[in-house]
Amino acid sequence: MEPKKKAITAAVVGTALGVGGLVVVAMPASAGSAPKLPQVSAEELVQSVAAAKPAAFDGTVTVSNDLGLPAMANAMPGAGALNVNSAHVYSDGAKNMKVALTKGTAQETIVHTGNTVWDYNSQTNSATKTTIPADVATKHGMTDGKAADPATAAKELLAKVRESSNVAVDGTATVADRPAYELVLTPKPTERTLLREIRIAVDSQTRMPLRLSVLSNGTTAPALELAFSQIEFAPQPADLFAFTPPKGAKVTEKQAKVDDKTKALANEAQASTKFVGDGWDTVVTGKVPADMLKAQPAQGERKGMDPQKMLSRFGKRVSGTWGSGYLFTTKVGGAVLTDDGRFAAGAVPEQVLYEALGAK
Score class of each variant (00 low, 15 high):
Pro209Gly: 11
Ser30Asn: 11
Ser41His: 12
Asn74Met: 08
Ala79Gln: 10
Arg162Met: 12
Ala168Met: 12
Leu327Cys: 05
Ala134Asn: 13
Thr285Tyr: 12
Met305Ala: 09
Tyr90Ala: 12
Thr220Lys: 13
Gly286Arg: 04
Leu226Trp: 09
Lys160Phe: 07
Gln296Ser: 01
Pro349Ile: 09
Ala31Arg: 08
Pro35Asn: 02
Lys287Leu: 02
Glu350Met: 04
Arg196Thr: 11
Gly346Cys: 08
Asn85Trp: 00
Ser30Glu: 14
Val136Phe: 11
Ala52Met: 04
Thr285Gln: 07
Thr62Pro: 12
Pro179Gln: 03
Ser91Tyr: 00
Trp280Ser: 01
Asp339Ile: 00
Met305Cys: 00
Arg313Pro: 10
Val111Glu: 14
Asn65Met: 00
Gly104Phe: 07
Asp177Asn: 15
Thr113Cys: 04
Ala290Phe: 10
Glu253Trp: 06
Gln236Met: 10
Glu191Lys: 04
Gly300Met: 05
Leu327Val: 01
His140Pro: 10
Asp170Tyr: 06
Gly32Arg: 01
Ala147Thr: 06
Tyr181His: 13
Thr219Gly: 13
Asp278Arg: 03
Asp259Val: 07
Glu108Ile: 02
Ala345Glu: 10
Asp339Gln: 01
Ala75Ser: 09
Ile132Trp: 09
Lys95Thr: 09
Lys316Cys: 06
Lys331Asp: 07
Val175Glu: 14
Tyr120Trp: 10
Gln236Gly: 10
Ala52Ile: 01
His88Ser: 03
Leu212Thr: 12
Asn65Leu: 05
Met305Gln: 10
Val202Glu: 11
Ser213Gln: 15
Lys261Gly: 04
Leu194Glu: 06
Ala173Cys: 02
Ala79Cys: 03
Ser165Val: 00
Ser30Gln: 12
Val40Ile: 15
His140Glu: 09
Tyr326Leu: 00
Thr138Asn: 14
Lys303Glu: 14
Ile200Ala: 04
Thr62Val: 11
Asn267Ile: 01
Ala359Val: 02
Asp291Ser: 07
Pro133Arg: 07
Leu69Asn: 09
Thr124Trp: 09
Thr321His: 07
Ala159Arg: 09
Leu327Glu: 13
Lys294His: 05
Val40Asp: 05
Lys146Arg: 15
Ala347Phe: 02
Gly145Cys: 10
Glu355Gln: 13
Thr138Glu: 15
Asn115Phe: 01
Lys360Asp: 10
His112Asn: 14
Ala180Trp: 11
